[in-house]
């Protein structure tokens, strides 16, 4: 497959991966609200968990927001790849026409457009790299959030020991949150590998 075609497809696949990650992040946000409710019911025994539950909520919301932003960037990359694809197709055809045309024809008229398209190609490449870096950074940021959630989940399991009757619920919830964070990490890792392949 042509590089532009690969990039267009990869960007669309990333948008789809992040859409799924966003759905998981929404579940994560609901779970964090549930955690907060249990912590309230557990009262003073679970005071340490209250901060943790708020933290979950905050990270889940940030992840939802980031996933939306990544979707937009991926869509921009996809559109941009199509423009680049068209531009390089035109350039290829003009170079072919130049080679096919006879030296005593009016072929000099083509070179002006070849130069123009090459210049445009450089601008597009520059802009494309900028968008790709933006995408990498955002994906990396989500990965960091997920790593943080992972660490907090371990801490909250330890804290849950002190909550007596609520321990079972809280441990189960922390494991659920950990599982969701892992799912999001998988989607993001897959997105990064798609991006690497298309570059």
């Amino acid at each position: 497959m042509d590089t532009h075609a690969q990039q267009t497809v990869a960007a669309a696949q990333i948008a789809s991966e992040l859409h799924q990650a966003q759905q998981v992040a929404k579940q994560l946000a609901i779970s964090s609200k549930n955690a907060r409710a249990i912590v309230l019911r557990a009262g003073s025994k679970a005071a340490g968990l209250a901060v943790i539950a708020n933290f979950y909520d905050e990270l889940a919301n940030k992840t939802i927001f980031l996933a939306q932003a990544i979707n937009l960037t991926a869509l921009n990359i996809s559109n941009h790849s199509v423009i680049e694809w068209r531009n390089s197709n035109a350039l290829e055809n003009l170079e072919k026409a130049f080679l096919l045309s006879e030296p005593d024809s009016h072929r000099d008229g083509i070179t002006h457009f070849i130069d123009k398209l090459e210049l445009h190609k450089r601008d597009l490449d520059h802009h494309f790299n900028r968008l790709m870096n933006e995408l990498y950074n955002k994906l990396d940021e989500i990965q960091q959030h997920m790593r943080a959630i992972d660490v907090i989940a371990v801490t909250s399991k330890l804290e849950a020991v002190q909550t007596g009757d609520f321990r079972g619920h809280l441990v189960e919830m922390a494991e659920g949150i950990q599982m969701m964070a892992n799912k999001i990490k998988e989607h993001v890792s897959h997105s990064i590998s798609l991006l690497d392949q298309a570059r």
Binding site: N93, L94, K96, A97, F98, L100, S101, E102, S105, H106, R107, G109, I110, F113
Partner: peptide
């Protein structure tokens, strides 16, 4: 057909 067509028409007229 674009490339061969462009090459063919430029034998007869400048692009403008």
């Amino acid at each position: 057909l674009f490339a061969p067509m462009l090459a063919a028409v430029l034998k007869h007229v400048p692009i403008e």
